[in-house]
């Protein structure tokens, strides 16, 4: 028996529950980027590797999240394979992880058109307002120095190794809570004179319009 295929045909949300009762190694090879290896046992991810590096729990989430939207990625499950050596054993329950990831994806899709643009620069308005939500609080701590001076979702995603849309979604939530706001550049100085001059010219040219408002 072999379980193999491509995530563009069989999504991760279909594949993982299928494997949850099994013990073995799941290999995921995206069209771009390095192979991701997940070792499963007893409905849990017990070890995750990308290249030679063992991944901590939040990186596993980020990797899987990036694979949710049916990208082209070959997968193959090798029953019985165990990690020969794993620095950083994991104990991630598959069902919980899937639920979390799919909820997050639905949330992102529900506000897709409203997500802040990747290159818009945001900075702190009131960092204290993130305290109520553990996820946001942790994210704010990770990104503290960048958000103090101003950063974009694209820059931060690169620095933290997180999917861009996830960072955009966190920015969206932080903005709604008033934790961050777009960085306001101060207007270029020295243009007051020319503005007044043009205003006078415009008012002479367009006389018929009433200028009171």
């Amino acid at each position: 028996m072999a379980i193999f295929g491509n995530l563009k045909d069989i999504s991760l949300l279909d594949l993982l529950p299928l494997l949850s009762g099994q013990q073995g190694k799941l290999s995921l090879r995206p069209k771009r980027g390095a192979e991701l290896l997940l070792f499963l046992n007893n409905s849990r991810i017990t070890c995750a590797k990308k290249g030679e590096a063992a991944l901590p729990p939040h990186r596993v989430e980020e990797e899987l999240f990036g694979l949710l939207d049916r990208p082209e990625a070959e997968f193959a499950f090798h029953i019985g394979d165990r990690p020969d050596r794993c620095l950083g054993r994991l104990d991630l329950r598959l069902e919980e992880l899937l639920l979390k990831l799919s909820t997050l994806r639905d949330e992102i899709q529900s506000v897709a058109g409203a997500l802040p643009l990747p290159d818009t620069v945001f900075a702190f308005a009131d960092p204290g307002r993130a305290e109520g939500d553990p996820e946001l609080r942790d994210f704010v701590r990770l990104a503290w120095s960048q958000l103090e001076r101003g950063t974009s979702a694209r820059e931060l995603a690169g620095l933290l190794g997180m999917p861009l849309d996830r960072v955009r979604y966190l920015f969206y939530k932080l903005r709604a809570l008033g934790v961050i706001q777009p960085l306001a550049q101060s207007p270029r100085p020295g243009r007051r004179g020319i503005a007044r001059q043009l205003l006078g010219l415009l008012k002479r040219r367009f006389r018929t319009w009433s200028w009171s408002h």
Binding site: L117, T120, G150, P182, A184
Partner: peptide, 30 residues
């Protein structure tokens, strides 16, 4: 000299996109 952001008063569905444009311009230019 300045940016005029145009928004349709009868299309609230375009407001998020308008805000994204304004945020982008405000945060990246003077």
């Amino acid at each position: 000299l300045g940016v005029l952001l145009l928004v349709r008063a009868d299309r609230p569905e375009t407001l998020p996109a308008a805000r994204n444009i304004l945020d982008f311009v405000v945060s990246r230019t003077q």
